[in-house]
Nucleic acid binder design. Sequence first.
RNA 1: AGAGUUGGUUAGGCAGUCGCUAUCUCGCUUGUUCGCAAGCGGGGUAGAGGAAAGUCCGGGCUCCAAAGGGCGAGAUACCAGAUAACCUCUGGGAGGCGCGAGCCUACGGAAAGUGCAGCAGAAAAUAAACCGCCCCGCGCUUGAAUCCUAGAUUCAGGAGCGAGGUAAGGGUGAAAUGGUGCGGUAAGAGCGCACCGCGUGACUGGUAACAGUAGCGGCAUGGUAAACCCUAUCUGGAGCAAGAUCAAAUAGAGGAGCAGACGCGCUGCCCGCGCGGCUCCUGGGUAGAUUGCUUGAGCCAUAAGGUGACUUAUGGCCUAGAUGAAUGACUGUCCUCGACAAAACCCGGCUUACCGACCAACUCUACUU
Length: 122
Amino acid sequence: MTQKAASFPAQVRLREPAEFKRVFAKAERSSDKYFTILAIVNELDHPRLGLAIAKKNIRRAVDRNKIKRAARESFRLQQHDMTHIDLVVMARREAAAVDSKILQASLAKHWLKLIQRCATFS
RNA sequence: AGAGUUGGUUAGGCAGUCGCUAUCUCGCUUGUUCGCAAGCGGGGUAGAGGAAAGUCCGGGCUCCAAAGGGCGAGAUACCAGAUAACCUCUGGGAGGCGCGAGCCUACGGAAAGUGCAGCAGAAAAUAAACCGCCCCGCGCUUGAAUCCUAGAUUCAGGAGCGAGGUAAGGGUGAAAUGGUGCGGUAAGAGCGCACCGCGUGACUGGUAACAGUAGCGGCAUGGUAAACCCUAUCUGGAGCAAGAUCAAAUAGAGGAGCAGACGCGCUGCCCGCGCGGCUCCUGGGUAGAUUGCUUGAGCCAUAAGGUGACUUAUGGCCUAGAUGAAUGACUGUCCUCGACAAAACCCGGCUUACCGACCAACUCUACUU
């Protein structure tokens, strides 16, 4: 497998509550008016993504789906530029109102910022 | 053609690239109890809704005792039917709205009992009082007429007092003790009559709600049950984070004996039932994983029955099953430029949200032939 596929299989997702707790405990933080994104270095050879879209902030199920899809899509396309870090994406209230292109642009900036910051620690 | 009513269908299309979930299949590798299993890669197929929503009703399913008894509490409320069931649906009745097609209705009981009624009004539930109207009596008084001027008598009127008759009228109010008309009377009154309304027991039609007919009764029974209440019917509780299986730590489960007070659960209370205590014996089941999880009161077609909801028969089909939670992103293109909004155990309904498009039946108005 020399050609890296832009895929999103199960092992690049955060699934266990314990894994989420580890990220929340002490993490690099990057936020704007749409998202707050947490990042921490992991012991694997690839990045992982977790989604924590609160029902309290994003009321309608349609909007929650839209935001999750935008996050996954952005991660999927750019994961090979990332180091071995765990990311957790949290949405803020304003994310429901805008369309997915704006969300994609916002996410791309966050990725870059967090990759750089984590690189300096490791 | 315009305006409208009812019912139904649909919910951007097409092509390409990259992804996600399930499933089938092929190849390779590893393991093998030779059934297969795991990993990687390729290909095929399927992949949100009419409301998936609100969680407002009704069921299935699961556990709580085989879900039990009584009290209490709650729900429903014209009649008949449909249904697994319903507060739903269908048909019918009654009342109301609309020229009409049609639409709307918390539509049982006030003649079992208790309670309530602001303002206004003469009076608000007890039938009377009050104002008013009428008659009679008593004196007083004004005018006119008659008689021989004092004065008397008669007629017409006025105010007062007393004794009675009335309930026609009384600006109100959501509601006023049947209504309208004619007769009747001193004035009046179902006092009498006609029509309307009401009550009542018959008859006719209808399964019934109810309707109609002729008769009888001169009218009794004011409103409020979205006040308590009465009557009839129904309802045990909790929910898929239900529950079941496999299983790291910690400590739980079953059986026998003892104890029978207290606590917890089953229902708010009582009865009743279960669990928990101590000793001995046998041996374990939280995180997590698997399952429950999609074949079902299922969908489609045809036929038959029924006004209809729906039912029955035959044939065909398998149509999401995620779980930090899939059904998407990008590009091109066309058009009428795409609303409201996304499964989470499953069904039947209700309610609410919604850009539109199309189809069918029907109604009204105008015009032409």
